[in-house]
């Protein structure tokens, strides 16, 4: 009976059930895999040019603070990161944009006009007006952002991992 060329009633039903079961398994199973790995597929490296206003408004030779925020969305969670930079314009309109994050342990530095230095309040690090280390524990100069001038507007390039 099992080897007969004719399909038995039981054999037919078994095949149909196996086929229907496999189809349902695939229809449910594949989306489930996609559902689970979905966040891994959106590998996004966001980078943006942040408008920082007219370049003319930044005084010559004096580092001027500029702050902005960036919003990151992870699933149902929104995180707002605040950034603070120092913009330094020289007479030939060359612009340097320094991160105010101390390269030692990440405190915020502030520019002191009296000494013409960026000073970190945490461990008394001193950076000169061009970001170089004068004294204190920092291992390297202040980080700089790439910048460009577009129609007289200063643009700061921010890359987020």
């Amino acid at each position: 009976m099992a080897r007969s060329a004719n399909v038995t009633r039981r054999g037919f039903i078994t095949s149909v059930m196996a086929f229907a079961g496999s189809v349902m398994g695939v229809v449910v199973g594949l989306p489930v895999i996609g559902y689970l790995i979905s966040p891994a597929l959106n590998a996004k490296k966001s980078d943006a040019w942040i408008p920082a206003g007219k370049l003319d408004t930044y005084p010559l030779g004096v580092p001027t603070s500029f702050s902005f925020t960036r919003t990151q969305v992870n699933g149902w969670e929104k995180t707002v990161n605040s950034f603070s930079v120092y913009v330094l314009r020289d007479a030939s309109n060359q612009v340097k944009v320094f991160s105010s994050i101390c390269t030692h342990l990440g405190c915020r530095v502030s520019f002191h006009k009296s000494s013409e230095e960026y000073i970190c309040p945490c461990h008394d690090a001193h950076f000169n007006i061009n970001g170089g280390v004068v004294s204190g524990p920092p291992p390297r100069p202040l980080n700089q952002y790439e910048s460009k001038v577009d129609n007289g507007n200063l643009m700061i390039h921010v890359i987020e991992a």
Binding site: G34, S38, G75
Partner: peptide, 12 residues
């Protein structure tokens, strides 16, 4: 997020 952000979330 399940409905709009995740692949096949609406289906599950």
């Amino acid at each position: 997020y399940i409905m709009n952000g995740v692949a096949f979330g609406w289906l599950i």
